[in-house]
Design a protein around this nucleic acid. Structure first.
Length: 194
DNA sequence: CCCTGATTCGC
DNA sequence: GCGAATCAGG
């Protein structure tokens, strides 16, 4: 991938919006966050100008490299993030939530599952959820990552709404507690022993 | 351990 | 110019 005009523009825009380099990289696709940062520097907009928020202010100085020769390094490989890129042309698009469009959100509160009575959610799981929601990090949609629980809590129609945000189970969109109520084994009896 | 940006330097 | 490797910090 090369830095086409459009890509650079998007980069600038997102960087200006305070998006992180990794998010930008994901959005652009085909580049790593390093590439993004590198480009940012080359473009001379390393500092997020104007914006009052300067999360990281590090006068870091380059150190001579000297390594203990121990870590082969294991970095996260760039994953082909397949995010449906639905942009409206023309206007400044609002940040696209990484959350799949989901109608009828089930607030993880009391009114539990409108689900078939076929399988009941273990009382323990429910208790766990209640417990967990006390500790929920109350993330906004922007703060969600692939590693944070995306269980919605509260009423989306009000500002009394947030996401669980606790560490999600690898491969799942929810934390363990919410996975417990979200993904019910479709067979309780079938093959229940091992 | 997860993440962030910053810098260096071989390409 | 580019970006992986690396560094430094939260």
């Amino acid at each position: 991938m090369s830095w086409t005009d459009e890509r650079v523009e998007l980069l600038k825009k997102m960087w200006g919006e305070g998006q992180s380099a990794s998010q930008i990289a994901k959005e652009l696709g085909g580049v790593t966050r390093n590439a993004v940062i590198g480009k940012v520097h080359r473009l001379g907009l390393s500092n997020r100008a104007g914006a009052g928020a300067t999360p990281t202010a590090k006068p870091a100085a380059a150190q001579p490299k000297a390594k203990p020769a121990t870590k082969p390094k294991v970095e996260t490989k760039p994953k082909p993030a397949s995010q449906p890129t639905v942009q409206d042309s023309g206007t400044e698009a609002a940040p696209k939530p990484a959350v799949p469009a989901r109608r009828q959100i089930i607030p993880a509160g009391q009114p539990l599952p409108p689900q078939p009575s076929t399988n009941e959610i273990p009382a323990e799981a429910l208790a766990k959820v209640n417990e967990v929601e006390k500790k929920a990090k109350r993330l906004t949609v922007m703060e969600l990552t692939e590693k944070t629980c995306k269980w919605p809590i509260g009423d989306p129609a009000t500002d009394d709404f947030w996401f669980c945000g606790l560490p999600s189970v690898p491969g799942k969109p929810y934390c363990e507690a919410h996975v417990g109520v979200a993904f019910q084994p479709m067979s309780s009896r079938r093959d229940r022993r091992r």
